[in-house]
Simulated assay, not measured.
Amino acid sequence: MTPSAGEAAPDAWDITVAPLDLAARVDEALAVQAQAFGLSDEEVAVRRHIVQRHLASPGARALGATTPDGRLVGFVYGMPNDRAQWWSTVVEPYLRRAGNDAWLTDSFTITELHVLPAYQRHGIGRRLITTLTDAAAEPRSILSAVDTESPARALYRRLGYQDLARRVLFPSAPCPYAVMGAHLPLRRW
C-alpha cells in the first residue's frame, strides 16, 4: 500500500535493498520511475525497451528497495560503461570539451536510480546506489542527472560525485543534464 499524501513512509530500515530481477519486474520499476520522474505513458513505453536492451549489456546489475510485503518502492541499475553505447556517444563531446572524457573509460555507469516520492529522503536512494557501486570492479562511477539544484544532485555530491560536464543535451529530453563522476567507493557521511 502506498502512503498517501501526509502519511509517513515506513521506517527506512523496514525497507530491504537486495538484487532485483529487473527483467521480471520492469513494469513495476518503470511505475516507480514514472512517479518519481514524472513520465508520461508514452515515455514509459519507450523506456521499457531501453531497460531491456541495457539488461543485455555485460555486467548489468539491478537492486530493488522493497517493503516487508515485497512492494517495489525504489530501484537502481547500472553497468560497466561502454564508449560505444548511445549514452556515452552523446555525453562524450561535452566531457571532452571539459577535459573529462577519460571518465568514460573504466567507469561503472548508474543508468537509473528512482525512489517513490513518499519514500524519498529516508536514505533509500543512498543505500541503493552505495550497495550497487560497492560491488563494482571499476574504480569510479559516472551518471547523468537533470542539471538543476535538486535533492538528487545534493545526494550525489554528498556521495562524492562532482560535475564533469553541464548543460548536456540529450535528444528529445526537455531540459539539460549534468554528467557527474565519483571515485569508488562512494563517500559515507
Rank of each mutant, 00 (worst) to 15 (best):
E92R: 14
A137W: 07
A178D: 03
Y77P: 00
D106C: 03
I142N: 11
D21W: 05
W103K: 00
A45K: 12
T89F: 02
A12T: 05
I142H: 06
A135S: 13
V146Q: 09
R53P: 00
V44I: 14
A152T: 14
G99I: 14
W189S: 10
A65W: 01
R48S: 01
F108S: 06
A36D: 10
R157I: 00
W13I: 00
M1P: 03
P93K: 00
R48L: 04
P174D: 14
H114T: 10
L128E: 06
Q33I: 03
R97D: 15
V44Y: 02
T16K: 06
V51R: 00
V51T: 11
W86N: 06
V73L: 03
E43G: 07
L159K: 02
Q33K: 09
E7I: 01
G181F: 09
A18H: 10
R153V: 13
P117V: 06
F170M: 04
T105D: 15
T109H: 11
G6F: 13
R71H: 11
T66Y: 11
T2H: 12
G59W: 11
A135Q: 13
Q52N: 13
D163I: 09
T130H: 06
D11M: 01
V17L: 06
D69A: 14
L169C: 07
D21R: 08
